[in-house]
Write a protein that binds this DNA or RNA. Structure first.
Lengths: 242, 242, 242, 242
DNA sequence: AATGAATGAGATTTCATTCAT
DNA sequence: GATGAATGAAATCTCATTCAT
């Protein structure tokens, strides 16, 4: 009874350990540069053991992505109310991102991995059908896109905005900022504030850029995360969605 | 005299040959996947010879960037008039980009390489001094940033816009679009129109996003490049900056 | 008492299970390609458990051989009459082979394994003493050899025929045909008729080749197995040894 | 002039060195057991260097085969007269085999490799068309088969003999004998006489087995290679084709 | 100046086998 | 007795870089 449970827990812990080490290395060196050997060494396991938990390098890396994305989505959904306006949904989305990121490096890794998973990830606008074939599991992508679509319907965004394109733009930009910040600062623990400033900045610009002409910009304001976030540990006061 | 000159000319030609071949391969396979061996084979030289011209793979790739940027800058400067408004300068910038790209793959390669050179490339806002140390040669970067700055001064853009950040955003987004388009379409010769559509779309959104509230959006319009660009060969009618 | 017996029975059943699974895999993929992991998976046991029953991969595979050979020998001996002529004995041998093979894949596996066990398996003529040391358990080998010997004594075969050599030739050829047939057809269930044709063909040639000059070839005829054999399930009408 | 030639010669020598070392290891350990690493160590080269000469393990091994077969075929053709009878051709074939083998280990390796190349090598009878598709380059195979065919036409062999099948039987048996002898004796230098005895024995039996009933066996005699062959160095007196 | 040749270091992956529980 | 977990050792192959000629 307890045994099976404990075994399962231990297995999950090992998996988590491996993912943790892989993430740390990705943050330090970037995705491409991290090898199975290094991950094994960091986790104090043999290379062969890694393959017990992840049947290939590729699968390990993909699992990191889906795991991180899954956490984020769950958190967002727990706070999201279907009757929210598109703009409020997007602002909540941003708040969730800040929150989650305050507690773990998941999102930073997720975006850092974007390049790795990009091959199946269309930037240019594709029809919804095509996209479904290419990456059916990317709920994160779909979530953002749906919010953009709703914003158009609600009249908050311009009619000629292409939701798929904008979605990819947002994700890609987040990914880029993370990439650059991490590489540049070299000490991830210092990342926090400056990183969020930049991201929020970009997010804000895109919101304004796609907003319908004449809309009051105060409606697009994202609030202030300055000095309220820490990369690890619990963050202090959180942003209240305006 | 004449001998030394000829030697130098030949050396420059060899360098150009190598860069040309490397670019072609980058377009076909992406930066990471291109090896020195492949470049050598395509250039019909030995690997060792490559090292006579570029002391490492890294340096070869960086030189591709600076070369491409140099061409573009010269072209832009030949058309640019210091008395132009910031908005007109940026629109001219976009037109030049379309033009240059119509005649060569330089810019596409330049952006495709961005990931590779990113480590020295500041995304987050740094002081001008710091920036100078990090990447003194990136005039391209500086040019865009200066136009953004001017736009702020002229009242076209919001006062709180961070020029360095926006510059990097623009460059990074171009880079991303190129990456994805090339990878997704797999046939570079078909890239043209769709690629420019997306780029222009994003460029437009950013212009709007940073524009001062209340500015007339018609002043930000970029014109239409649809069907006017070809990936290789001279392009037909060009866009007139509005 | 009863407990010890039951344990032993259970142990034997486990062993049989493992051997059964290993055989199935050998037929599907060939000897070299089958790993302990695969056998364990097919048997729904852990790899470690395999090692409780067979102390090494090698030993497992050898045991498959001896087990299969043992079955065959018992069947042959149940039909064999010591007063039969050598030629009739050999023909009965062939009939038994066809029969056994009709009911199980034992023999096909046995021959398929030959390469694997070859190191201890003398091809070149060795003295009887030496042979005894090398492979004491290979009664199958000895049986055929004794029949050849008897055939020489009875004047059916040439005096200068080397029984050990011919025996190995016969076994090896069967092995080869099985190897090739299985690999080539890729669908073991379709093997049956064509396989027997070839084997009988070779067996016939060897009989003729070792027969005394001038002997009437009708005495060497093996009959016809065409369409009478099925690879699995019970075969219909059997061949009557002529 | 001289330089290019010398380079080419050196390259050929390196290739030959690698093949030589690979062959030696194959003789000592069998094909499957030999790794690129071992070959490299024996040749006192790095693994990477091996890949400079043979683009994969597979290709190295196949080249060993084709090289050895090529030598043999050339030698045979230099002695063969198209007007010879099929029987004489086959006997010459055997003499050539003995000769070549007396001077090098080529043939021993060739047959030792049979398992490795077998996958494309049908044992069961296939139509000539099919065979051509599967292994068009196996001239050795075709040569023997053509001799068997001619023997049937000339009335030396039975009408119902299947040339493809017999050819494969002959090659496979040679291969098996080599396999077993080499593995059993473990000292290749002692292989010589006993090996040839066995092979000749088998070859003789097959000739008799496929010969037309009633043919005078003295016409099938292969002569005597006993004590006349050495595995390395030049062999003494050679067999005269009877 | 040019290059063929060589290589060290490292990547991913597999597998027979052991051992604590 | 059974097994999940772990692993050492080895296999194939790649690539940026160096060096003698």
């Amino acid at each position: 009874m307890g045994i099976a449970e404990r075994k399962e827990r231990e297995r999950a812990e090992r998996k988590a350990l491996i993912i943790r080490c892989a993430k740390a290395l990705i943050l330090e060196q970037g995705v491409e540069a991290v090898s199975m050997g290094e991950i094994a060494k960091r986790a104090e396991l043999s290379k062969a053991t890694l393959y017990l938990y992840f049947s290939s390098r590729d699968i390990l890396f993909r699992e990191i992505c889906s795991e991180a994305g899954f956490h984020f989505i769950k958190y967002f959904q727990s706070l999201h109310n279907p009757r929210m306006s598109a703009l409020d949904s997007l602002k909540l989305f941003w708040k969730c991102y800040v929150d989650i990121f305050g507690k773990s490096d998941d999102m930073i890794v997720l975006f850092n991995m974007k390049e790795y998973i990009t091959p199946d990830y269309p930037f240019i606008s594709v029809s919804d059908d095509e996209y479904g074939v290419l990456a059916p599991s990317f709920e994160l992508f779909n979530m953002i896109r749906d919010m953009i679509k709703a914003g158009i319907d609600e009249g908050a965004f311009e009619q000629d905005v292409n939701p798929t394109l904008i979605t990819h733009t947002i994700i890609s930009l987040f990914s880029l900022i993370v990439d650059n910040t991490v590489k540049y600062l070299k000490k991830p623990q210092e990342v926090d504030v400056v990183l969020f400033d930049e991201m929020q900045n970009i997010f804000q610009i895109i919101l304004r850029g796609i907003a319908r002409e004449g809309i009051d910009r105060s409606r697009l304001a994202l609030g202030d995360v300055r000095k309220t976030v820490k990369a690890s540990g619990s963050s202090g006061e959180k942003i209240i969605v305006g």
